[in-house]
Simulated scan of single mutants.
Amino acid sequence: MAYATTEDGHRIYVRPTDPRAIGLIANRGRIIRGSLELWRVALGLHGWATVIDIGVNYGEMLVGVDIPEGVELIGFEPNTALHKVLHKTLEARGISIDLRSQAVADKAGTARFAVDRTWSGTSSLYDERHDGSARWQFREVEVTTLDEVLGVSGRAFCVKVDVEGFEREVVDGAAKALANTSHWALMLEIEHMDRGYLAELARTYDVFVKEKETTSLRRVPGERIAVEELLDDSTLHRQDCVVLSPSLS
């Protein structure tokens, strides 16, 4: 079975026919270093009761960090073709996870999911980007929401969201949990996020990006032009942001 070996010597098992797997092998178990660094920062902000990885893929964002003992760990990966190698990876790392094949969005139900045969990391819920080419394999998946998963327990949670353009839906589906929990953090991919929505998010919540060379966070402003100016700064990690509860910001 093919695998990537991380800088810490951990194995990430992969499907060798997936070009993303080849990238993981070549880059010692990571695709974007800054994303893993920001995830470490988010995990270190509080003593979380629940940690959720939405879009687990091969599990590199779990293998590359220290998951505290006793944490409820939930992973969502609708591309079930990855589950076998993912379980092997996490078992080897000693990580116990509740791995679910659902997608996460703004309402529960079922939806069409597009598996990218050319790069597993860009698989997502179906939208206008997905043509009828051989690149895509379509299947129906169950869909849940973070509100449904977290309930109203008030337990502190930290979530990594990598859903290829459906970040707004995930956030909308977490409105009750965000309002009823004192300590929470959401890490969202923003590389392809509409800047207008990012500004809107920053007007509603406390949103930050990380400096590349430090663990310092820079607040994202609530105006589109200001957001665009901020993200022109090459000293910042511009792939992801972290959204924090007022108690943490």
Rank of each mutant, 00 (worst) to 15 (best):
L248I: 11
G132W: 01
L125K: 07
E191A: 15
K88Q: 14
L188Q: 05
W48K: 10
A179D: 13
G59P: 03
E140Y: 02
V171P: 10
A175K: 11
R129M: 07
V56C: 08
I97V: 15
R238S: 09
G109L: 02
L230R: 09
G9L: 01
D98V: 00
R168Q: 13
V51K: 04
L244P: 00
E148L: 12
V207Y: 02
A81K: 14
S124A: 15
E229P: 00
E72L: 14
R219D: 00
A226M: 07
R30S: 13
G29P: 14
I67P: 10
E200G: 14
D66I: 01
V149G: 02
G132C: 04
T89Y: 05
V149Q: 11
V220P: 03
V41I: 12
T6E: 05
S234F: 11
Y3F: 13
S245I: 01
A114W: 01
A42H: 04
T144L: 14
A134G: 15
I67L: 14
G64R: 15
H237Y: 10
G64S: 15
A226E: 14
T118C: 08
G132P: 00
V171T: 06
S123V: 10
P246G: 12
A111V: 02
V41C: 08
G94Y: 03
R139K: 15
E91Q: 12
L217A: 06
V209K: 08
L82E: 06
T145E: 07
E77D: 07
D206N: 14
H87M: 11
I97C: 03
G44D: 06
Y3Q: 04
P246V: 06
L45D: 00
L125E: 10
